[in-house]
Design a binder for these strands. Structure first.
Length: 562
DNA sequence: GGTTAGTTGATATG
DNA sequence: CATATCAACTAACC
């Protein structure tokens, strides 16, 4: 590398895209202004510690791997590349700052407690090495912190209130992907770049610990190009967009009835602001269209809603110490949890959903409702935290804020309170698939059952079971609970928990059954953390916090004015 | 303090 | 396919 040239690092974490990436754009702007002075190193840090506390199933590892490959490829199109750096960020960054003579670090901010703590440490080290830092809010359409600020410091607890607040806020126009960089801004190879300790190539699946035998077919390939392609295909159906009503889409169609853009949003392969902007353009041209909460825009705003709530509480993904969450005395039941996890509850509709989840990494939103309600308040009375852990592992779109928020919703622990509205594991699926084709696909042992019995195979006589080639209790499980019976008991327990909440308000009042082993923590911090220690912005000086809050800057010195 | 609305329940009925 | 009833919650608003 030219000894005179300094390095600008853009750190990819989520936001695995080059379009509408304001932090990357800041880095590139600076390079264009001083093309002789800087080289750009876009990096992704692969931390080998992560699998020790975060469960990531093989399908999501693959989605990430594909996303990194496409990111590298898209960066190469603009005469750069992706440098995948192996190691713990707190250890890696000081080394890179020193070795590469880094002057600026840019990245997209993240509200997850793990990310906040990690970023705080990296920023501290940046200061020590005299490295400027620019962060942007670009994973969400709005800045969650700003919404909270406009809501008297408390995140809205209902969607309507949320809508009211954001309706007063402006949204920045999405940015185009950058044009090709000047040739000089590509660093020359490190002298030992391709030795084992200095390989910056994208990881192969085996490096990510993925056994290819555990992978399902690639139904939703990861990456920016794939995400944009999928979104473009949606945009070509304006009538479908304008008529979209989430509750009227089917949870058990054989092909997805919704967009399946969630995995791309989770990794930031596609920008939520771009989606918002392009969808609005479609709606403008039509005189009639659906609206939030049921419309497509409404779905994006649900994401914002949960992100805002999650940003205000580091304990958002646990019951205890969570300011949103009602304390409910769930019971541990290892056998029932395992039956649910692997699709062996004896309820074909539930089992089909759980098997689709494991195989494909995506299930419809309402299918998530059905199985989440079944696990918690509806049937098994098992904590939503246990379900959250399974979704965390298996969903391509598993997202800390959205996963926790929706589990609280479905278990009637927060946001949703009509606990007596319970999904039936038998009737609900029949509304959109009366013949049970979905069950036949994902629970093939029941494929020969007639449609009159496929949702309730236990109603078949022994002779019929032999005839259909599937003996209940042998080839397919007996149902592990009787829905009509447990439903009544659970409803009474919910009423009791709600009553106690009214009387005592909040945590610690219940005899929560902790006799079984504690589950694995979902973040490096095992115990609930106090909100005061990890909320909000760092103590660094905020130079710029716009109305729509695209850019928050922390500068020791302004690299633009030498 | 009373009223109303709430992303998408189930069932029976017209 | 739309509506009433079931039983009855909280949050937001007047």
């Amino acid at each position: 590398m030219d000894k005179q040239q300094k390095t600008i690092i853009h750190w990819f974490r989520k936001g695995l895209r080059i379009h509408d990436n304001p932090a990357l754009a800041e880095a590139i702007d600076l390079i264009r202004k001083s093309p002789n002075k800087y080289v750009l190193r876009p990096i992704f840090v692969l931390d080998p510690e992560i699998p020790n506390w975060l469960k990531v199933g093989p399908n999501r590892w693959r989605f990430l791997q594909e996303s990194l490959l496409q990111l590298d490829s898209n960066l190469r199109k603009i005469k750069s590349r992706l440098y995948v750096v192996r190691g713990d960020p707190k250890v890696i960054f000081p080394k890179l700052f020193n070795e590469w003579q880094v002057e600026l670090l840019t990245f997209e901010s993240d509200i997850e407690p793990y990310a906040r703590q990690r970023d705080m440490l990296v920023e501290k080290q940046a200061k020590k090495f005299n490295v400027n830092v620019i962060t942007t809010v670009s994973h969400t359409i709005y800045n969650p912190e700003l919404i909270i600020q406009k809501s008297q410091g408390i995140a809205p607890k209902q969607y309507e209130g949320f809508l009211k607040i954001v309706s007063t806020m402006s949204i920045p126009e999405p940015l185009e992907a950058p044009a090709a960089l000047p040739a000089k801004s590509k660093p020359s190879k490190d002298s030992n770049e391709h030795t084992d300790s200095k390989c910056y190539d994208c990881p192969a699946l085996h490096e990510l610990g993925v056994n290819e035998a555990d992978l399902g077919d690639v139904l939703y390939p990861g990456g920016e190009t794939e995400g944009l392609k999928r979104f473009q295909a949606i945009l070509r159906k304006p009538d479908w967009i304008c008529g979209f009503e989430k509750p009227k889409t089917s949870p058990n169609s054989l092909k997805p009835s919704t967009t399946v853009l969630s995995p791309y949003l989770k990794f930031g392969c596609i920008s939520s602001r771009l989606m918002y902007s392009d969808l609005q353009k479609v709606l403008k041209n039509k005189k009639k269209h659906t609206t939030p909460p049921v419309s497509l825009i409404g779905q994006l705003l649900w994401r914002e809603f949960f992100y805002t709530a999650a940003a205000s509480d580091p304990n958002f993904n646990r019951m205890v110490g969570n300011s949103f969450c009602r304390q409910i005395p769930w019971k541990k039941n290892v056998q029932h949890l395992e039956a649910w996890t692997y699709g062996r509850t004896g309820y074909p509709f539930i089992d089909a959903i759980m098997r689709q989840l494991r195989q494909e990494g995506w299930i419809h939103h309402l299918a998530r409702h059905a199985v989440a309600c079944f696990l918690t308040r509806g049937d098994l009375w098992i904590s939503w935290e246990d379900g959250q852990r399974v979704f965390e592992e298996l969903l391509l779109d598993a997202d800390w804020a959205l996963n926790a928020g929706n589990w609280m919703w479905l278990s009637a622990s927060a946001f949703y309170h009509l606990y007596y509205r319970v999904y039936s594991p038998v009737s609900f699926g029949k509304k959109t698939d009366k013949d049970g084709e979905y069950i036949r696909k994902y629970v093939p042992e029941l494929a020969n059952y007639p449609k009159s019995m496929i949702y309730e195979p236990w109603t078949a006589t022994a002779a019929q079971q032999r005839e259909f080639g599937c003996i209940i209790g042998k080839d397919y499980p007996q149902r592990i609970v009787i829905h009509d019976v447990v439903l009544k008991k659970n409803m009474a327990k919910m009423a009791d928990a709600y009553q106690k909440h009214r009387d005592g308000g909040g945590g610690g009042k219940f005899d929560v059954d902790n006799t079984q082993a504690k589950p694995e923590p979902q973040s490096p911090k095992t115990e609930p953390v106090s909100p005061s220690t990890s909320s909000g912005c760092s103590s660094s000086k905020i130079l710029k916090m716009e109305q729509n809050s695209t850019i928050v800057k922390y500068f020791k010195k302004d690299p633009k004015s030498p």
